[in-house]
């Protein structure tokens, strides 16, 4: 590995962090909900894919048309059953409820599918790579990483268009601006929030699928996924989707550059960067310039 390669890999890996983080950013920006179980829901996406692809005998990629709608439905159901109530239950309730949910998910996965590490078989995508020559050095990039980065870009771009251009997005932005007035002028808030929760869980599940294809996962992997996603959101600036992408890329870069020095220090370097940002620039590097979600 070389420095140029580390930067390119860092950017590509950063795409995954952004994908894992965008749902967290979305639910906080719009509903003021910090979903502590977000990382666990991502891991659920990986397990769901594992179970479906082995039960149906399909490659991982072909299960996505099933996994994503199921994840969306889970998000909607969670909002209708838990999040909506929690948001009305005072300032501590959302944190406590989603933390309880996180504990439940992790241990249900242990009980049902054991704590053994698993991974998803990405097939040819995992093995194939492309060699690029840049700045006089040869870099090998895996197609899987490239696909992950492009998927993240597509998801963030799609979310941006959804929020900025559609009538649904208009209702979302209005509700996010001023919940009380949105109700007064006749917006039905519950379906709007439930849809947002569904989208957030679907993006988390997609991030989980890429996690499963590039690394191993176990039922407790959700905690670290949440922390990384959260760090991307805070470093990028709360409430800004494009900030979240840049926050994710920043994490990817720091991780890959730290790995040049010593692989053991990659995670620690990211956490320390997060604390440094919090101490020096708590609004993040790319905060939303206006109170809007996109």
């Amino acid at each position: 590995m070389n420095w140029v390669g580390a930067v390119v890999q860092g950017v590509l890996v950063g795409g995954w962090y952004a994908l894992a983080a965008c749902g967290l950013s979305l639910t906080f920006g719009i509903m003021r909900l910090v979903n502590i179980a977000h990382g666990d829901l991502a891991v659920c996406g990986a397990y769901l894919t594992l179970v479906l692809s082995s039960a149906l005998g399909l490659p991982v990629g072909y299960t996505l048309p099933l996994v994503l709608p199921i994840a969306f439905a889970i998000g909607v159901a969670l909002h209708l059953l838990l999040f909506g109530r929690a948001l009305r239950g005072g300032p501590l309730a959302p944190v406590l409820v989603t933390f309880g949910l996180s504990v439940m998910i992790e241990n249900l996965l242990v009980a049902g599918l054991s704590a053994d590490p698993r991974s998803l078989d990405a097939g040819r995508l995992a093995l194939a790579g492309v060699r690029v020559t840049a700045f006089g050095s040869v870099i090998t990039l895996s197609w899987l990483r490239i696909a992950g980065f492009l998927t993240a870009l597509a998801v963030l771009g799609g979310l941006h268009l959804l929020l900025a251009r559609t009538s649904f997005g208009r209702l979302v932005r209005a509700t996010s601006d001023d919940l009380d007035t949105a109700r007064l002028v006749g917006v039905r808030v519950r379906p709007v929030f439930a849809t947002v929760a569904g989208i957030a869980v679907a993006t988390a599940a997609l991030a989980g699928v890429f996690l499963g294809m590039t690394a191993t996962f176990d039922p407790y992997a959700g905690g670290l996924s949440l922390i990384f996603a959260f760090e991307a959101v805070v470093i990028g600036g709360l409430g800004s989707l494009w900030g979240t992408l840049l926050g994710g890329v920043t994490i990817g870069l720091v991780q890959q550059l730290a790995a040049q020095w010593d692989v053991q220090y990659t995670v620690l370097a990211v956490h320390l960067l997060f604390f440094a940002v919090l101490a020096v620039r708590p609004q993040g590097f790319f905060p939303a310039s206006e109170p809007e979600a996109a």
Binding site: F28, V34, P91, P94, L238, F275
Partner: peptide, 10 residues
């Protein structure tokens, strides 16, 4: 809120 919670976890 939740952001404080996760930051302390970090």
């Amino acid at each position: 809120g939740g952001h404080f919670a996760v930051a302390t976890w970090v």
